[in-house]
Computed example of a mutant assay.
Amino acid sequence: MATDLSFVEYIAEQSRLESSLTWKKMFGEYALYLGGKVVAFACDNSLFIKASPETAALTAALPGRPPYPGAKDYPVADELLDEPDQLRALLLATERAMPLPKVKGAAKRVKASKAVKKAPAMKAPAKNAAAQKTASKTTPAKKPASTKTATRKRPVR
């Protein structure tokens, strides 16, 4: 079941984080962001907090379950929706505990530069005729392309 936008707006209202808390719809559900970091997910109209060792004490009393099939258990903070101060404190603590997101453009440039450095060196062409003959004997000759073009007669109507 997809999460309603009104539920996400309610979370934002209850957390009192104003424009600091943003969200992005993903596969019918929502990821909630603080400072560019994912801090929670809204799935099936429930609030799932990203777990971290730093926030374990704040989420210890919360029930846990997976937000979608095949996922690990996340603390479910639905009961904190009626406790704005605790919800705000949990979201801010989670934001401090999460690492900064990786910059996508820089990561691609780094991968590209590593690929260029790892490229194998090209062989130099043979300099003399004997070497060329040896090279041509070891490599199979390519068949020349046919010069004839197939023509089909179309039936006359």
Score class of each variant (00 low, 15 high):
residue 92 L to H: 05
residue 36 G to H: 07
residue 119 A to I: 01
residue 154 R to A: 12
residue 64 G to E: 12
residue 110 V to Y: 15
residue 66 P to K: 09
residue 117 K to G: 00
residue 5 L to H: 08
residue 29 E to C: 05
residue 120 P to N: 02
residue 70 G to K: 09
residue 8 V to A: 01
residue 133 K to W: 01
residue 122 M to T: 06
residue 3 T to G: 02
residue 5 L to Y: 10
residue 61 A to D: 08
residue 144 P to E: 11
residue 71 A to G: 03
residue 74 Y to H: 08
residue 13 E to S: 13
residue 136 S to K: 12
residue 55 T to P: 03
residue 142 K to M: 04
residue 23 W to Y: 11
residue 43 C to L: 08
residue 27 F to A: 03
residue 92 L to N: 05
residue 66 P to T: 03
residue 134 T to Q: 09
residue 82 D to C: 08
residue 102 K to M: 15
residue 135 A to M: 01
residue 58 L to F: 14
residue 55 T to E: 07
residue 7 F to A: 02
residue 74 Y to A: 01
residue 38 V to M: 11
residue 36 G to T: 05
residue 69 P to H: 15
residue 96 R to C: 08
residue 106 A to D: 00
residue 108 K to Y: 03
residue 58 L to M: 11
residue 113 S to K: 04
residue 46 S to H: 11
residue 68 Y to W: 13
residue 9 E to M: 13
residue 65 R to Y: 15
residue 156 V to P: 07
residue 154 R to S: 13
residue 80 L to I: 07
residue 82 D to H: 12
residue 142 K to C: 00
residue 35 G to D: 07
residue 7 F to T: 10
residue 33 Y to A: 08
residue 104 K to S: 13
residue 61 A to Y: 15
residue 4 D to Y: 13
residue 27 F to T: 07
residue 87 L to A: 03
residue 74 Y to F: 12
residue 131 A to P: 06
residue 34 L to R: 04
residue 62 L to Q: 06
residue 102 K to Q: 15
residue 66 P to W: 10
residue 107 A to D: 03
residue 37 K to M: 11
residue 107 A to N: 03
residue 70 G to R: 05
residue 148 K to T: 06
residue 134 T to R: 09
residue 140 P to H: 10
residue 19 S to D: 14
residue 58 L to P: 01
residue 114 K to A: 08
residue 50 K to P: 01
residue 63 P to L: 08
residue 21 L to E: 01
residue 119 A to Q: 06
residue 87 L to D: 02
residue 84 P to D: 02
residue 99 P to H: 10
residue 89 A to I: 08
residue 121 A to W: 00
residue 5 L to E: 06
residue 79 E to N: 12
residue 17 L to G: 06
residue 13 E to H: 15
residue 135 A to T: 04
residue 94 T to F: 12
residue 5 L to D: 08
residue 51 A to Y: 13
residue 22 T to F: 10
residue 72 K to Q: 07
residue 109 R to I: 05
residue 100 L to C: 06
residue 151 T to P: 03
residue 117 K to H: 07
residue 130 A to P: 04
residue 52 S to L: 12
residue 85 D to M: 14
residue 89 A to D: 03
residue 93 A to W: 14
residue 8 V to N: 00
residue 110 V to F: 15
residue 132 Q to N: 01
residue 38 V to Y: 07
residue 98 M to N: 13
residue 119 A to F: 00
residue 43 C to Y: 05
residue 149 T to V: 14
residue 85 D to E: 14
residue 120 P to T: 01
residue 24 K to V: 15
residue 62 L to D: 03
residue 130 A to W: 08
residue 67 P to N: 01
residue 81 L to R: 14
residue 72 K to C: 00
residue 90 L to V: 04
residue 57 A to R: 14
residue 17 L to N: 07
residue 77 A to N: 09
residue 154 R to W: 06
residue 87 L to V: 02
residue 157 R to E: 07
residue 118 K to V: 00
residue 141 A to Y: 02
residue 38 V to A: 08
residue 131 A to N: 09
residue 59 T to Y: 12
residue 105 G to H: 00
residue 16 R to H: 14
residue 72 K to D: 06
residue 153 K to I: 11
residue 156 V to M: 09
residue 81 L to W: 06
residue 11 I to D: 00
residue 16 R to T: 11
residue 42 A to K: 06
residue 52 S to C: 14
residue 57 A to W: 15
residue 76 V to H: 13
residue 109 R to Y: 02
residue 6 S to Q: 11
residue 111 K to G: 10
residue 55 T to Q: 09
residue 52 S to Q: 09
residue 96 R to T: 13
residue 47 L to E: 04
residue 34 L to H: 06
residue 57 A to P: 05
residue 90 L to T: 01
residue 54 E to I: 05
residue 80 L to M: 12
